[in-house]
């Protein structure tokens, strides 16, 4: 592992750096576009580094764009879904891993089966059911369908099983209730798994597209994904490329900053799903 740098090493490094350039270039490109006047972009996008530059596209967002409202909706949905998923999946995971109750094998088998159901394949019946219940265009409709998350339950079940049972046994002998043991002892020990599941869920909710597309049909209930998509189909007919790119930058920036801030934790947490 500590050998001298070989030609192979240099080639690998060159390939990785080249790839990194491919990863960064599109983002740099649209950031550049967002500072150019729309009129000029209509003619050419070839002079990104020479004037004129403008801040108008960003000023216009503050004045007129619905991006703020969409971001708020996305944040409510993503945070709400993450918190509730963690609560539901932790409790169920603990129940399956540590307790015994009638019907457990059947319910666990059902969970495994539910894990195999692709979420996009039940959108049509879900949409009809929510329409019958008159629930579309609410946060509840945006959050509920993704709360039944068998993957999360299985992940938590595995994690709780891996925690040595002796700690809990001592507490149980002291006549602590099951719930108290869960709340006071097991839950704090499961924080790494919570982080993994939480970040998965958050990113999943933040990026979800099909369900919000058909459920949040009122423009004021749009999430960021649906709202931005509604603008991009004919950007020439709207305010132009620069404005659209400014909105993309504006919509992407908060999560990107958040990510850079917490990146060490996020990467560890995501990896937590694979190994500990």
């Amino acid at each position: 592992m500590h050998g001298r740098r070989t030609l192979g090493d240099h080639l690998v490094l060159a390939a990785v750096v080249l790839l990194a350039a491919i990863w960064v270039a599109p983002i740099a490109w649209i950031v550049g576009l967002s500072f150019k006047p729309n009129d000029e972009l209509m003619r050419s996008t070839g002079h990104l580094l020479s004037p004129p530059f403008t801040l108008k596209n960003y000023a216009d967002i503050l004045g007129a764009s619905s991006v703020f409202a969409w971001m708020l909706n996305s944040a409510v949905v993503a945070v709400g879904q993450t918190v509730l998923t963690l609560a539901v999946a932790s409790a169920a995971g603990y129940g399956f891993a540590r307790t015994s109750f009638p019907g457990k094998p059947v319910l666990f088998a059902l969970t495994l089966a539910a894990f195999a159901v692709p979420e996009q394949a039940i959108i049509v019946p879900l949409h009809t059911l929510f329409a019958e219940a008159d629930l579309h265009n609410t946060y509840a409709a945006l959050i509920l369908p993704r709360l039944a998350f068998p993957f999360g339950v299985l992940l938590m079940t595995q994690y709780f099983k891996a925690i040595p049972a002796e700690i809990e046994e001592a507490a149980l002998l002291d006549n602590a209730s099951r719930f108290k043991v869960f709340w006071r002892i097991a839950l704090p020990l499961s924080l790494p798994a919570q982080a993994t599941l939480g970040i998965y869920t958050f990113l999943h909710a933040w990026n979800d597209y099909f369900w919000p597309l058909v459920s949040a049909t009122k423009p004021e209930m749009y999430t960021l994904t649906v709202g931005l998509a509604s603008m991009q189909t004919n950007f020439a007919q709207t305010e132009g490329i620069g404005f659209l790119m400014a909105q993309a930058v504006f919509a992407g920036l908060p999560v990107l900053v958040l990510y850079l801030f917490f990146q060490r934790h996020i990467v560890t947490a995501v990896a937590g799903g694979a190994a500990k």
Binding site: L129, A133, L135, T138, A140, I143, L144
Partner: peptide, 22 residues
């Protein structure tokens, strides 16, 4: 199926009433 679904959904919606859109 629809009726059961509706019932379950309605119960869940009640639970999530605080989150319902203004």
């Amino acid at each position: 199926a629809t009726r059961l679904g509706k019932g379950v959904l309605a119960a869940m919606a009640a639970g999530l009433a605080a989150l319902a859109s203004p």
